[in-house]
Structure formats: structure tokens, C-alpha cells
Write a protein that binds this DNA or RNA. Structure first.
Lengths: 207, 207
DNA sequence: TAACTTTTTGACCATAATGGTCAATAATAT
DNA sequence: ATATTATTGACCATTATGGTCAAAAAGTTA
């Protein structure tokens, strides 16, 4: 069905995909404009509809594509054998940073798609959401070794604090990094800053 | 200039204001529709333009209104004499929850307004931003008593962690609470949950 | 070279939505 | 009953929408 599109060179595919993800992520299904997408992607109107019949088909293709990427490049790579929550979350956030760089609008798009209220696509989204991977949020905390926490610490709450703190740090970094090229990012600086925070939290909650 | 609008009954004013704040907050200046606003506010098209000449005037009025509210009902009420960071942030977040309830779209709108790229209003926003109140973020941490922190703790980082954790908690609550009526909100439950988190953080970082 | 296939274009549709107007109606005050 | 004010919504020109399609450009095969 999308074979024509899929046999394009990767670079062009990505350009179109990114443009479309961005537009939908920013405006939602109804308000997203195919004109904007083709302008941003640098292709003609006709070509977009040549690849993806309709706006709706494009949207649903993007969703399936996003789920696939999320599975193979994010959730699928989370190592649930790592039972130390700090090491685990460290790994996960580095992963997320990478995915973010390769697909800057993927997470935003997924969120918009899942929560869309648009009549045109809601039904299709609803049926897709049924066979979705476990939310991932659960996966973050799956099989964590709780015996490492100090006695008397409410582990659930502690994990939430850790989660929020890392999320806050992550968002701050993401803001800074969003515009930059991968090569411009000071990975080492970010990492040592990150580790300083993890170390503080470890001292707070671990034995 | 907006005297006609300002002499309306408060209830109607609020209805119009909230509808407009919501539409602009959700779609940004360019994509916001005055038709949507009047529909949501339950007034006729003509009336909106009778009160606020143009879409642009409405937008700028809303911004000034938002700044005013933020000043008088939020930043202005922060007690910087309270030097304990936990007590301070506790107070601030309760305040924020209240403002959120009275004006659910105010914070989102302000953000959208400040970051807008729309040609129609960018210049006016730029000049307004100059004489803006200190960002508030600074005010959160102004005059905090750092001597209460454990020796050897990097206070700056600790405060960030505290800030992120509270922000995370706050957002979670906001999500839950957004739709509800003020009377339906289980303030006591939220508060005791909040206090449990604050207590944990206090144990982490205070002497 | 020429014939044929595939990819790509953008001017062009009907339709719908946009910000804004204004004569006319309804509500209120005198 | 008259004058004033508040409110309506059909209407306007303009712009944007998702989608089409004949034709041009690029690529392939001979």
C-alpha cells in the first residue's frame, strides 16, 4: 500500500516523515495542513497524495511508523535485567535522547495521536490502541530491586521522586538540544551533570 | 478602550475571557478562531467585535489581563519572608492550584503568548515583554535559607531536584483536577500526599 | 537516438473557514 | 411611547482546505 513511498531513498523518506510528524504534532489532526507538510518537506502537493492517498492514511501510517520506531529503538532496547533503578533510568534517558535526536517530533506526535478527539481518525486510533505495547511507563519500573532502598523509605514515592527529577532534568536538556545537530551536543557534559544528579538521589534513597 | 467589556457582569466577562484564553492557548494566535471563541462563550460574533475591535486587540488585552492576574493572584502573593524552601514551595503550589482552578488556561495562554512567532502580534509582544515582572522562577528561590541543607550537599542541584519533584507532582495533580469543579477536589487528600513527598525530600537534603 | 515507463510538478477544483461588518432586533431606561 | 443600549447573525471578500490530473521531467531500455 505504501510501497511507493517505502522504496524512496531514506533521506527523502525522513524529510517527508519529519515534516508530517511535526505538523500533526503541533496542530493535531484536524488543524494540520497538508500544504504546510509539503512546503516543509520540499515536495509538491501531488507527490504527497501520490504516496499516501489521503490525509487520514498519512496520519495512520505515521502512527504505525511511530509505534514501530518506539518499539524497536526505545522500549525494545530497555534492559529490564538491570535491576538498579538509577542505572536503569540512566540507560533509558540516554536512549530517549538518542531517539529524540533522530525523530524530534515522534514523542509529541504519538501523544497527540493517542489523545486526538478528531472524528476523522478517532475510531481507527481507538482500535489501534487496544493492541498497543504495555505503556512503557510500567516497563520503566519493572523488576527493580527494591531491597537497595534504605529501610523505612516509601519505595513507591521514592521512585516517583526519582522519576520526576530525571524527567525534569531530561526536559531541560531536551529544550537546549532540540535545535542542535547531533554533533554539536556536548554529550560528556550532559552525562556528567546527569550523573551528579543520580548520585545525589542515590545518596538520598539507597542504603 | 475596553470599558464596554469591563462593565459587563463578572460572570459573562469570565465566560468570554476563558473561552478566548482557551482557544489562543490551544491553537496559538494565527490558528485561533474567533468563531470558536464566540461559540464557546455563548455570544454572537458581532458582540465579540463590539467589545474588542479586532482579534489582535483581544489577544493583547488577554495578555495584559493575564499578566495582571498573575501578578496579583500568584507572584504577588508569594511570601519571600518564608525562608524554608519546602514551606515556601508548598505555599506556592497551593497558590498555583488555586489560580489554575480559577483560570484554567491562563498559564498555557501566557506561555503561548510569550513564545508566539506570529507576525501579527510578535512586535507588540516583544515590547511588552521588556517591562515584565521578574520571571517568577527566580522569585521561587529568592532569599532561601541555604544553611538548613546538610553540609556537603550541592544546594543548587538539590533545589533543582526539589523543584522538579514538586513540579512533577503538581502536573500529575493538575491533570487529574483540570476537569473537576473546585468543590469536587479532595484538597485534604492532595495536601497530605504532597506533604509526604515534601517530608521525604526534607529528610534527603536537610540537616 | 527514440520509445516507453516512472516520478514529480503545480495550477486548479469545489468547499469551507477566516476576520470583520452592519442593518435590524431585543432589552432596558426614561 | 420614546430613546438608548446591547445583541444578533446573515453576509462579505478573502484565504485556506484536501484532493485531482494533465503534463512535464527524469530515468530506463532499445
Amino acid at each position: 500500500m505504501f510501497s511507493k513511498f517505502l522504496s524512496l531513498e531514506k533521506e527523502k523518506q525522513e524529510r517527508i516523515l519529519n515534516a508530517a510528524l511535526k505538523e500533526f504534532a503541533q496542530k493535531g489532526y484536524d488543524d494540520a495542513s497538508t500544504n504546510e507538510i509539503v512546503k516543509e518537506a520540499g515536495i509538491s502537493k501531488g507527490l504527497l497524495f501520490h504516496y499516501f492517498n489521503t490525509k487520514k492514511d498519512l496520519f495512520l501510517f505515521l502512527y504505525d511508523y511511530s509505534v514501530e520506531i518506539t518499539k524497536t529503538e526505545y522500549y525494545g532496547l530497555i534492559n529490564t535485567n538491570e535491576r538498579d533503578i538509577f542505572t536503569r533510568l540512566r540507560q533509558i534517558y540516554l536512549l530517549k535522547l538518542e531517539v529524540y535526536h533522530k525523530h524530534p517530533w515522534l514523542f509529541d506526535f504519538t501523544k497527540v495521536a493517542v489523545y486526538t478527539e478528531s472524528k476523522e481518525v478517532k475510531a481507527e486510533m481507538e482500535s489501534r490502541k487496544k493492541d498497543v505495547l504495555s505503556t512503557g511507563y510500567e516497563k520503566l519500573f519493572e523488576n527493580i530491586d527494591v531491597s537497595k532502598f534504605k529501610d523505612g523509605v516509601d519505595v513507591k514515592r521514592a521512585m516517583k521522586i526519582i522519576f520526576w527529577a530525571i524527567g525534569g532534568f531530561g526536559n531541560e536538556i531536551l529544550e537546549e538540544v532540540k535545535e542542535l545537530e547531533l554533533s554539536q551536543v556536548d554529550y560528556d557534559g550532559i552525562l556528567s551533570e546527569f550523573d551528579a544528579y543520580l548520585e545525589m538521589l542515590r545518596k538520598c534513597f539507597y542504603k
